[in-house]
Nucleic acid binder design. Structure first.
Lengths: 353, 353
DNA sequence: AGAAGTTTTGAAACCCCTTTCTATATATCG
DNA sequence: CGATATATAGAAAGGGGTTTCAAAACTTCT
């Protein structure tokens, strides 16, 4: 018995249920949505028939009638990146709990595609859009993109993880400043003073904030800021970490601790360190960000900044849904507090270094 | 000018467009769908008005009228697994090209959830369902699950990557037998004879097929099959590879080559090998499967079996869409041919080992 | 020019559910 | 017990497209 095929191959509808239960379609609808009282006699009868045919209301019709699709669109850079994958899974779980499903689009670093897919999600009439990464995480907002988002926001809530100047987007973001503070305090407690930062791009908000705090922390300790120890023009993958760490070594520098902008880059850093004959954490302490499975699986296990993905995804989705429901009290900015997970890649600075 | 907000906040519909263009809604629809001839005069006028209001037809209404949602549901184990993430990205791209969007559900290894989400996708009336991993990849099919799939297939095509006995699911799968043959030939050409297989579970179809072929290849060369060299009761993650490789070493065995069931497990194997003081590929050759970014980023770079994800995803999606469109000529089984990407983890067996 | 055939167009039904508005049935009260 | 208040149920009007069917507008041909 399928809900979609009736006796003549047609789908079963609430009309069929109504007829068989001897009530009106309106009553069936009321039973289904549970939004109005129905006498228990009729209700039982309707439920019996629904059960008999394993009837499920047509999502499309329901969405049309209610002018909402119970669908959230997520636009991200690349779900193959473990950070984004983790974010997605927690968003999906949170959305599912609330009765929403999630459409996922990856723009794969293609700026043109990013805008196109945003437009597409909008046209598809998802109830809300969540932007992970991309333009909405950049330090200097792209005006054109911001305008596109503004247009969309007239009808569809947009939630981001960074900032987008010129828009009133709600944002759920990580306290990057705090995250760097945690890392620096940790390193200072291990007596490190010559600390490199590797990977990332300064035009990305979170990276910018981290680097700023990194410098502040050094200055706060009366330590010098060596620009040579700050990797430049990198990215967030293995090669960025690998290449930039190599460059630092090639300059003849040898930090006692390295902060990688994420676990992926840390992996590259790790390789560079090994190739240069050093050991972690004996010679160099290494810290990552994002606390993906890579941190746990690295050799040695990597100290990393954790964001509590479950909480993060839930906050994003909850914010989106509350906006869909017209809740005016949603805070414009929701900060996720990071924590530091100390593992084997952290070590005390050795004497005389 | 947004398509959703009219002058009174109401959404613009084809009726509005029709009125302003001086034609009937039917004509607007014809222009929009391009499924029937419209005189170029009227067509131009309609397009002009559409352009003016940046009108986009309501997806829900369209779907309802056409009784299809232009949405494909993908159910997978866990998108945080790079293999699945790669599969998803290629499916998403292929679907997008065809005008479909993709709803993604992860069941995270939870059998109960897997069935629940399958049901949910069905009830949501996605046009087709693609199952990646899970029950549909198992050697011995779960009868209950197969029955659920059968019910669904009465109205919604289901495409899988393994097999599901008792159903007529179309399948797009990797030629696992061939993939093992490639690996074994490669290892034989490097003079290896003492070859271990690590990770994976024998109740998974592809793993089963690989192990079978592994044994066949050894026998074909007149080499002994040592059950101690076949990891048992493992999985597909870092720890499975790590633990099983440790066990092999603990038994006092020392293979000259190791085949890991996937790159993730290979990573664990790599760590175990290093911890036991051996070098790759000098002492031990290591081969992975799936050719994820891990293979490229590993140290040393990992030889791995590649599946051409783009082709794979495209085949899955194309199959699904052709079934949706009622194409009877879709082959029931579509094999994806693997290739071996040789990298630095492959080395010649040393003399006397 | 008029008959016959071919296109193009519009009216209306349909896809399937929700919801408002009204009518009926029941409960409450003086 | 009749009058008013309250529950419950149904009819019908959306929600916004597509499509069938029949009428209207052109072509073509004799």
């Amino acid at each position: 018995m399928q809900s979609k095929k009736g006796s003549e191959g047609r789908a079963i509808t609430i009309y069929d249920i109504a007829r068989e239960a001897g009530v009106s379609p309106a009553t069936v609808s009321r039973v289904l949505t549970n939004r109005a009282k129905v006498s228990s006699a009729k209700k039982d009868e309707v439920l019996k028939v629904i059960e008999k045919y394993n009837f499920r209301p047509n999502t499309l019709a329901k969405g049309l009638a209610e002018t909402r699709s119970k669908t959230i669109g997520v636009l991200m850079a690349d779900v193959r990146n473990p950070y984004y994958a983790s974010m997605f899974v927690s968003c999906e779980m949170a959305a599912r709990t609330e009765g929403y499903s999630v459409i996922l689009y990856n723009f794969l670093g293609d700026v043109k595609l990013e805008e196109e897919l945003l437009e597409r999600l909008f046209e598809q009439r998802v109830d809300a859009i969540i932007l992970l990464g991309g333009h909405a995480d950049e330090l200097v907002s792209n005006t054109e993109y911001a305008e596109a988002v503004n247009n969309i926001m007239a009808t569809t809530p947009v939630v981001i993880t960074g900032k987008l100047d010129g828009t009133q987007c709600n944002t759920v973001r990580i306290n990057s400043v705090k995250s760097m503070e945690l890392v620096m305090e940790h390193l200072f407690s291990l007596k490190h003073e010559k600390i490199a930062v590797v990977g990332g791009r300064m035009d990305v908000l979170s990276t910018y904030e981290k680097i700023l705090k990194y410098k502040q922390c050094l200055k706060g300790r009366g330590l010098p800021v060596d620009p040579e120890l700050i990797g430049d023009g990198g990215g967030y993958d293995f090669n960025s970490g690998y290449r930039q760490m190599n460059e630092i070594f090639e300059k003849g520098l040898k930090p006692t601790a390295v902060i990688a902008i994420n676990d992926f880059a840390a992996w590259g850093v790790m390789r560079s360190i090994h190739e240069h004959g050093f050991e972690i954490p004996k010679d160099i302490t290494l810290i990552g960000y994002d606390d993906t499975y890579m941190a746990e699986a690295a050799d040695p296990k990597l100290t990393s900044v954790n964001y509590n993905y479950e909480e993060y995804g839930k906050a994003l989705v909850r914010t989106a849904i509350r906006l869909v429901e017209g809740d005016e009290t949603v805070p414009r900015v929701h900060m996720i507090e990071p924590s530091l997970v100390v593992r084997d890649s952290s070590g005390m600075r050795r004497e005389g270094e």
